[in-house]
Simulated assay, not measured.
Amino acid sequence: MHLSRDVLITLIKVLSVIASAIILFFIGLMIGYGVVGDGSPTHVFSRALWQHIFEFIQL
């Protein structure tokens, strides 16, 4: 029983680190696009913007 609790605690720690990394990635996208790129920070989640970026990379 003690082993399963240790595994659960480790799993929660790993998932919290992954969730924190994802949240910080999106915050970084918003800061980079909004402050450095002089755009609207919420526009970074626009589908049209990402289509344009992927088209630019494929050329």
Rank of each mutant, 00 (worst) to 15 (best):
M1D: 01
M1R: 07
H2N: 10
H2E: 03
L3F: 15
L3C: 14
S4W: 15
S4Y: 15
S4R: 14
S4P: 06
D6E: 11
V7L: 14
V7W: 13
L8K: 11
L8M: 08
L8P: 01
I9E: 06
T10N: 14
L11K: 12
L11N: 13
I12S: 10
I12V: 14
K13T: 08
K13H: 07
K13G: 04
V14A: 09
L15Q: 07
L15E: 04
L15V: 07
L15R: 08
S16L: 08
V17F: 13
V17R: 09
V17S: 06
V17L: 13
V17W: 13
I18W: 09
I18K: 08
A19N: 02
A19L: 10
S20M: 13
S20N: 11
S20W: 12
S20V: 13
S20Q: 09
A21W: 11
I22P: 08
I23E: 00
I23G: 06
F25Y: 15
F26Y: 14
F26V: 05
F26S: 00
I27M: 09
I27E: 00
I27P: 05
I27N: 04
I27F: 12
G28M: 11
G28A: 12
L29Y: 10
L29E: 08
M30F: 04
M30Y: 03
I31R: 03
I31T: 06
G32N: 09
G32R: 04
G32I: 03
Y33I: 03
Y33Q: 00
G34D: 00
G34W: 00
V35F: 07
V35Y: 04
V35R: 03
V35H: 02
V35I: 11
V35S: 02
V35T: 04
V36D: 03
V36A: 12
V36C: 05
V36I: 15
G37F: 03
G37W: 00
G37D: 00
D38G: 07
D38E: 06
D38V: 05
D38A: 09
D38S: 09
D38L: 06
G39K: 08
G39V: 01
G39L: 01
S40A: 06
S40W: 06
S40V: 05
P41L: 02
P41E: 00
P41V: 01
T42H: 07
T42W: 10
T42S: 10
H43C: 01
H43M: 05
H43E: 03
H43V: 01
H43T: 03
V44G: 02
V44W: 04
V44M: 05
F45V: 02
F45R: 03
F45M: 06
S46T: 03
S46R: 05
R47P: 10
A48P: 08
L49Q: 07
W50A: 00
W50Q: 00
Q51I: 13
Q51H: 12
Q51A: 09
Q51F: 13
H52T: 11
H52F: 14
I53G: 02
I53C: 02
I53H: 04
I53M: 05
F54Q: 07
F54S: 08
E55D: 11
E55L: 14
E55W: 10
E55P: 05
F56V: 03
F56I: 02
I57K: 07
I57C: 06
I57L: 13
Q58K: 15
Q58W: 15
Q58I: 14
Q58S: 15
L59P: 07
L59S: 10
L59G: 10
